[in-house]
């Protein structure tokens, strides 16, 4: 359940950047090959945000697919998982995308004098 500490890292980083402003939504990129389960992050997000400036914020997760480059035949291929096998038979495949794990953007409310969290 590494998603709990990873979600905690998201909340820590967003809290720092929001600098006290209320956060209405958080957009993440969690690649299909990242080793992180988006549903587990959604579950953890509610727990971890409680009592923070992110409480109640919407969590939007983009899940870019995995793609690879075969070093043997030079072709680009889709990767459903980390089993790196090109149709040409080569296992010498470099992962090009799908390992993304980042906070893309946040939506914040303007800070007002009566709403310092």
């Amino acid at each position: 359940m590494h998603e709990l500490s990873i979600t905690q890292s998201v909340v820590d980083a967003v809290s720092e950047h929001a600098a006290g402003a209320r956060v209405a939504s958080v957009r993440l990129r969690v690649g299909k090959l990242s080793g992180v389960v988006p549903d587990a992050m959604r579950f953890c997000f509610e727990l971890v945000t409680e009592g923070t400036s992110l409480q109640g914020a919407e969590l939007v997760i983009d899940e870019p697919p995995g793609t690879g480059h075969c070093r043997t035949c030079g072709s680009e291929l889709a990767l459903a998982d980390l089993i790196l096998l090109c149709p040409c038979g080569s296992a010498d495949v470099a992962v090009v995308s799908g390992r993304e794990l980042s906070v893309q953007s946040i939506e914040v409310a303007p800070v007002t004098s009566t709403e310092v969290v």
Partner: peptide, 14 residues
């Protein structure tokens, strides 16, 4: 009423 802030932060950066 919200503002979008682009962060592009690596989650495991810390």
């Amino acid at each position: 009423d919200t503002q979008t802030r682009t962060l592009e932060l690596d989650i495991l950066a810390k």
